[in-house]
Amino acid sequence: MRRIISVLMENEPGALSRVVGLFSQRGYNIESLTVAPTEDATLSRLTLVTIGDDHKIEQVTKNLNKLIDVVKLVDLTEGSHIERELLLVKVRASGAQRDEIKRSVDIFRGQIVDVTSNMYTVQVAGTGEKLDAFLQALGEHTIMEVVRSGVSGIARGEKVLSV
């Protein structure tokens, strides 16, 4: 099962390496990981996508909670939630291709954020699946470079993860 675990932790040097170290040390896998400070500069918010059965995920969350730097965490996949990932992609775009790409970008509600006479840089946000679909729609031979941010997530409704 794919799980999105959202972690609130002390914004301290070494904190991130403890989280990552825990995963390699205990043989858990990380599909993606994003981290940045929150509105409270002493805290970081980390979103981690991992895959495992219930037993494994229970161990992952218990061991994350044991890290002294971890203040709180939640498994977003336990409830309804919003997940987003940002994609930046450079594509070859010249001649007739340019219109076609623009149409795809519109369909996926993306934006062209940089342009030269031969290429576009496109930005799309959405779930991982949507980004996969967009890349597929572009076609392999037009793609020059892909950057994905990894998943960020937040619970739906009034539930918040805070201290």
Binding site: P13, G14, S17, R18, G21, Q25, I68
Partner: peptide
């Protein structure tokens, strides 16, 4: 801090 990370409860620099 790096060497001891997997074998400490916590560490400080």
């Amino acid at each position: 801090v790096g060497c001891s990370r997997p074998i400490v409860k916590h560490s400080f620099l």
